[in-house]
Amino acid sequence: MNIIEIKNLKFTYDNKEVILDDVSLEIKKGSYTTIIGHNGSGKSTLARLIAGLLDKSGGDIWVNGLLLKEENLKHIRKEIGIVFQNPDNQFIGSSVKDDIAFGLENKCINPKEMDDIIFKYASRVGMENFLDKEPHLLSGGQKQRVAIASVLAINPSIIIFDEATSMLDPKGKKEIKDLIKNLHKDSDKTIISITHDIEEAYHSDYIYVLNKGKIFKKGKPNEIFNNSKELNNIKLDVPFNVKIKEELEKNKIKIESYNSVEEIVENLCRLKLKN
């Protein structure tokens, strides 16, 4: 079942430059979908449109079978959480617990129940020992964890990550990526990840490639990355393992599987043993 359906979506800020042009896509419930594309291709705009933060110029968006329009906006917002790129600018409360509480306050949750909910989701992201900390005492990665907890606390069925790891150091990046992966595994939430991280895209369920406001390509990772030239033309890279595979094929070497660099190394060693 598709939790999000978009038909012929159009968007423009000023009626001149078209930012999104005739975008149609479907996202399966419970899937991990990535959206990749060069800077300025319209990824963030698409995310904002889905979450109802921008008004579309044309086309239709359905979320959970509900058409996105003014009357349904409040309901749809509850279904969708977004984690943005900048860790500082999405930290609304003055401390970790106040930040998680913000969404709960908007949902009119009874203040007496809030402490339990806050603790539950702070623990989910490993921030339960920092509840009273102010944002300027936290690392970027920790702030992104709090942002994730704040979004989880609203209990949306869809979470959009708009380059949530791109401003973090390598360690923070890995931590947040693992957190998102576990989140997807342990819950039935639908994950949409906008990313420049090709490896992350390679391990997702489905990929949409956006280029200049249009869907350039869509499909399973293997289908997307089987042609590196095509992607290089729109300034996108392919994962390292796919590059090795292409080079091996050029040299007429065939191996069984190439899902990760480790697998390739192992397969190559076996090949050597056989010969």
């Binding site: 943005f84 908007n106 203040p111």
Partner: peptide, 20 residues
């Protein structure tokens, strides 16, 4: 950014909300 984040977390000015 902050305005987007607040809106995305369900904040609507002048609507009733509880206080933590």
């Amino acid at each position: 950014d902050l305005a987007s984040a607040m809106e995305a977390r369900g904040y609507i000015p002048q609507e009733p909300r509880t206080r933590y």
